[in-house]
Every structure is written in structure tokens, then in C-alpha cells.
């Protein structure tokens, strides 16, 4: 779980006592609010949607005075948007949010100068996971943990390195998904028999490298850095370093940023040993429990 606050929600009310918005304006309002990070509910026509939690503002073209609205969190801002342009309504929602913090999609964050957290973290397909704990042993960033019932869980999603799907490569059961990845089955696409075979081959690649791909990557990185300092052409040295690292990184689809962020070899060894011990303890506890 990450600590980002729950973003405010907006309700566009078009039920009794309110005039529906024009379809095109409704579409534009939804798109603009969603792209700024707000959840939006259209309520009042057909089957009503679930009353949203953490509602910050109710919008409507009300006949007469806007109704008083309360939620479990207290009074809710109600705004009559009769005659308002969409942009004006969007700005009113922003104003109603006040100083309340929220994560923003990248485009909105760039526009407002704020920061964004890309929701990149492993999602476990529990129908496929066999609780082998290979991912827990492999990850150096404490993303994985063990539940009270001795099962694998994603404990610290915010620790995950954005765009790195390496742990999914070592999962022998193709049970780890990254929904924001660009290709299947890592993105959650159905798993075929050939995927299972291919993923197992990638585990073997890791084993061929001595079972500690991070140590090997670190070594290659250090070698490349050394060459860089000796060679006269910085561009040539940099290109060589990139070629060396690419070969290994491709085997596990590890982004360059992750390689650059790796700790010292000693620290890697310490963390790997710690993770392996945790995995072994969890496996033993799970077996004892059954």
C-alpha cells in the first residue's frame, strides 16, 4: 500500500430536480476531470451508481436552490453549474479541493509543476502462484513480503523500480503481472503453454549467469566504467558500456535506471542473502502449516 492520499471524487448529478448536461459537454467534463486525477460519477439516470466515498463536490444544473448534501465525511460542496463552461467547472472543482494532496496523472502533474507516481508494481495472479518465493528471493528492494498465513504478498509496491519487470521473468509459473507493461503475458494477457516454457528458459539464463544476475550486472557495469576512464573517446566508451549492459539487461528486461541504482556488490549480497532467508523461512512455515 502506498501513502498517497485518496483523491477527491466528483459527482455529476442529473436526477430529479436537475437538468441533464448536453452530451458533448458531459463527455468533455469527464475527460478533463479524469485526466487531472479525479474519479467521477454520473448519478441520477437509470441505475444509480454507488454513492462515492470521499466525495468533494456535487455538480448539477439544479432547478432552484442546490440541495444540502452530506456524506460520512461531513458536508459536501454542491455547485450549480447552470450556464457554466466546462473549463470553469473544472477550475471550480480544483478550487473546492483546496490544499488536499493527490497523486496526478503525468500530463496534469507536468502542467501544474507537481510530481507524479506511476503506479508500477507487481500484481500476483493467485490462480497461478505456487508460493515458491523465487520473486521474494530475487527482489532486492523489499517489494515482496509474507502474509500472516505464510503466503507471498506485495508488501511495498512503492519500492518497485518503475518499468522494471525483472521479477516476473524469474517466476516459473508466469504469475507476476505488471499491468502497465507493454506486452503479454507480463501485462496480464492470457498465459499460453509457450509462455510458461519461455519464462522457465529465462530462469535458466539467470542460473547460467551464476544464479545472481545482479552481481553479474554490477560487475559488467564496473568493467565498463573502468574502460570508460581509460579510453580517450568518451562517446566510444559509453557506447561500449551500453552494449555490455544491454546484453545482460535484455535477459531480464531490466531498465538502465535500475542498473544505475544498484547498490554496491557487498550490499547486493547482503540483501540477496536476507531475502533468500526470508523466502526459505516462509516456505518452511507454509509447509509446516499444511
Amino acid at each position: 500500500m502506498i501513502a498517497t492520499p485518496t483523491p477527491p471524487r466528483v459527482v455529476l448529478y442529473e436526477g430529479p430536480g436537475a437538468e441533464p448536461m448536453e452530451a458533448a459537454n458531459r463527455r468533455e467534463l469527464f475527460a478533463r476531470l479524469l485526466d487531472r486525477g479525479y474519479a467521477v460519477t454520473l448519478a441520477g439516470q437509470g441505475s444509480s451508481a454507488t454513492p462515492p466515498l470521499a466525495t468533494v463536490i456535487v455538480l448539477g444544473r439544479f432547478h432552484g436552490a442546490p440541495p444540502a448534501v452530506e456524506s460520512a465525511e461531513g458536508a459536501v460542496c454542491v455547485r450549480d453549474i447552470t450556464g457554466e463552461a466546462v473549463e470553469q467547472t473544472v477550475e471550480a472543482v480544483e478550487a473546492a479541493r483546496g490544499t488536499r494532496q493527490m497523486n496526478r496523472p503525468p500530463a496534469a502533474a507536468a502542467a501544474t509543476g507537481g510530481e507524479t507516481w506511476k503506479p508500477w508494481f507487481p500484481v500476483i495472479d493467485m490462480d497461478r502462484c505456487t508460493n515458491c518465493m523465487q520473486c521474494l528471493s530475487f527482489c532486492l528492494f523489499d517489494v515482496y513480503g509474507v502474509s500472516e498465513t505464510h503466503h507471498l504478498q506485495v508488501e511495498n509496491p512503492a519500492n518497485c523500480k518503475v518499468n522494471c519487470p525483472a521479477c516476473s521473468r524469474v517466476c516459473p509459473d508466469v504469475a507476476i503481472m505488471f499491468p502497465k507493461y507493454h506486452a503479454g503475458p507480463i501485462d496480464g494477457a492470457p498465459v499460453s503453454e509457450s509462455d510458461v516454457t519461455r519464462e522457465k528458459m529465462k530462469v535458466d539464463i539467470s542460473a547460467l549467469l551464476g544464479g545472481d544476475i545482479y552481481a553479474k550486472l554490477r560487475e559488467r557495469s564496473a568493467e565498463a566504467k573502468s574502460r570508460f576512464s581509460r579510453e580517450r573517446s568518451a562517446d566510444q566508451a559509453l557506447a561500449e558500456r551500453r552494449r555490455c549492459l544491454k546484453k545482460l539487461a535484455d535477459a531480464a528486461a531490466i531498465p538502465q535506471e535500475v542498473l544505475d541504482a544498484l547498490p554496491s556488490p557487498e550490499e547486493i549480497q547482503r540483501r540477496a542473502a536476507e531475502a533468500a532467508a526470508r523466502a526459505e523461512a516462509a516456505r518452511a512455515a507454509a509447509e509446516a502449516a499444511t
Binding site: I2, A23, F30, S47
Partner: peptide
């Protein structure tokens, strides 16, 4: 949106799950 039928729209299910 143009159908006018009630629905819920969220910016990103991954972000909500996290």
C-alpha cells in the same frame, strides 16, 4: 457519457489498487 446512463469513471485502477 453520451448515453446519459449512470456510471463510475476512475483515473486509473492500478493507482487505486496501490
Amino acid at each position: 457519457a453520451e448515453s446519459g446512463r449512470a456510471f463510475e469513471a476512475v483515473p486509473d485502477l492500478c493507482e487505486m489498487a496501490a
